[in-house]
Each structure stands twice: as structure tokens, then as C-alpha cells.
Write a protein that binds this DNA or RNA. Structure first.
Lengths: 98, 98
DNA sequence: ATGATATTTAGCTAAATGTCTAAATGAGTC
DNA sequence: GACTCATTTAGACATTTAGCTAAATATCAT
């Protein structure tokens, strides 16, 4: 949980998550959307990955990043619930098991 | 919004907000719950106040901190809504606003 | 005015963070 | 194998952060 909030503290990383919401993207595609170097973006990706907010797989030469929505959801909802925020109607989100 | 997420990145500060959920407390009462010095706590309070997450008033010798639930709520819900998380049921909230 | 209590400000250190360039690694292609 | 493209690692640097102690400020009581 701490790692998630640490990861969310940086605007670049929050933006990465937003972009990924529309579907998986390669490291390069993501990097092209930001005014910082690729190594810098790579460091941000590492932090997001270690927080569990994104997952990766290789596709040929590229590394594809994909949003782990359930992790973001868990963190936001469970923290919010400590304050009675939003917890009443848990969204029946995209295909998880159950 | 960035200030709110920055403020939430530290576990001490998140815990302060949780304690404040049960009602207003003085700086000293809050500090007594944490294993760090009062000046350090004071710095955390400043960050929370600048993010708008807490408000203060003086009461005699003491400074009373109170949670600004609506600010936390706005940040969490509006960020969550970018991802379709939880946002469908808008806060049916209790008392204190503004 | 003095003294006691509560909190913040000042000044410092050590560690973490975000950024860069240059070099290394991995994966296809010729 | 050698080349090229995509990404990450290494190393350096500046800034920010969280923590401390000591001192300043503010309020109340005597």
C-alpha cells in the first residue's frame, strides 16, 4: 500500500497509468508522450512495476506495459473506505474472477 | 491535486488523517501517537495543511487540527473516476463540509 | 513581569528522488 | 557474426525530504 501511494505521488507516473488505461503500450510509445529521457521513464516504470500497478511482457524487441487496474482499485477503495469515501457502491469492474 | 498525492505519499501523514477521522485533535495529541519529534510532526502538519487536507484553529495554547474530508474525497474520487473506479455512487456524506 | 506549556521556525544532516548522458543488454535482421 | 533497434543499467548531479536539536513565539497562570 505504501508503495502504491509513493508511486502515485509523481505526476508523470499518474499520467502513465492514465495512458495505460486505454490499453497496453510499449516503453517507447509511453516515453514518446513525455518530455523526459528514456532512462528516466524506465526508472518511473520500475517504480510502477514494483508497486504492482503495471505488469510487463516482452514482445519481440519491445517491452509492453499494461495497467493492473485491480491493484489501483484495491488501494484507492481500501484507503477510501477508512474514511467512508465511495465505499458504498463497489463497481463491478472488468473481468476478474470472483 | 498533486499536493494531495504528495501529502498522501508518507505513511505518517496518512495515519494522521486516519486519526483525525475520529474528530479534531491538537498538534500535541497527534504528536503523542507517533515516534518522531514534535518539530517533525509540525512539518508533516504543514504539508497536510498546504494540501488542504486539514484545517486548523487555535484553542487557548493549543492548535487544533481537523480533517477536511471533502478535499480527500474530491481527490480520491476524481482520480478514481479517470479509471472508472468506484465513482458511480457519489458521496452520500455525513455532516461536516466546506 | 515571570514562568510554564504548546507549537512552530531555524539550521543542520543523511537519505531518497528525479533527472541526465554514456554504456550495456536483449532481440531481431542481414 | 555484425548491425540495428528498444530498453535498461551505471554513474553523476541537484533537489527534495524526513528527521534531529536548539531557539523563538504565543498563550495562559501567577
Amino acid at each position: 500500500m505504501n508503495a502504491v501511494f509513493k508511486a502515485l505521488a509523481d505526476p508523470t507516473r499518474r499520467k502513465v497509468l492514465e495512458l495505460l488505461r486505454q490499453g497496453p503500450m510499449t516503453a517507447g510509445e509511453l516515453s514518446d508522450r513525455f518530455p523526459v529521457s528514456r532512462p528516466t521513464m524506465s526508472a518511473h516504470f520500475t517504480i510502477l512495476r514494483e508497486a504492482g500497478l503495471v505488469a510487463t511482457h516482452k514482445d519481440g524487441k519491445s517491452v509492453v506495459y499494461r495497467l493492473q487496474l485491480s491493484v489501483l482499485e484495491d488501494a484507492l477503495l481500501s484507503f477510501g473506505q477508512l474514511f467512508g469515501i465511495g465505499g458504498t457502491a463497489p463497481a463491478p469492474r472488468e473481468g476478474s474472477s470472483t
